[in-house]
């Protein structure tokens, strides 16, 4: 039981750090937003491994859905109104 949780936790932590790195290093705004969504996706799996299903559920619904939407929507409006 412990090795399985530890293996998954290791993968998920590495994934979260890589995604954060991509989000900060990339030149494209859309990729940065996707990276942030991926960070919260991995964090949500980590929450389940850390025995916090309530928190994981909130993070899954808010982090990868609603937050991503807010960013992309504002970016869509800015693109339409002639931003760079």
């Amino acid at each position: 039981m412990i090795p399985l949780s530890f293996l998954l936790a290791l993968l998920v932590c590495a994934g979260a750090l890589i995604a954060a790195g991509v989000a900060l290093a990339t030149a494209s705004r859309a990729t940065a937003v996707l990276g942030a969504g991926l960070v919260s996706l991995f964090a949500s799996v980590l929450f389940v491994i850390l025995a916090a299903p309530d928190v994981a559920m909130t993070e899954a619904a808010i982090g990868s859905g609603l937050t991503t939407f807010l960013f992309f929507f504002v970016m869509g409006r800015i693109r339409r109104e002639g931003g760079k």
């Binding site: 705004r29 919260s40 980590l46 850390l50």
Partner: peptide
């Protein structure tokens, strides 16, 4: 926009730390 993205990443990090502090090894969800 990218400043705000970075801010949300830091936000997630704070949450991870808080949940990790509440975890006790070998126990299960409340």
């Amino acid at each position: 926009i990218r400043m705000i993205v970075a801010f949300t990443i830091a936000d997630t990090g704070v949450n991870v730390v808080l949940v990790a502090v509440g975890y006790l090894p070998g126990r299960t969800a409340p």
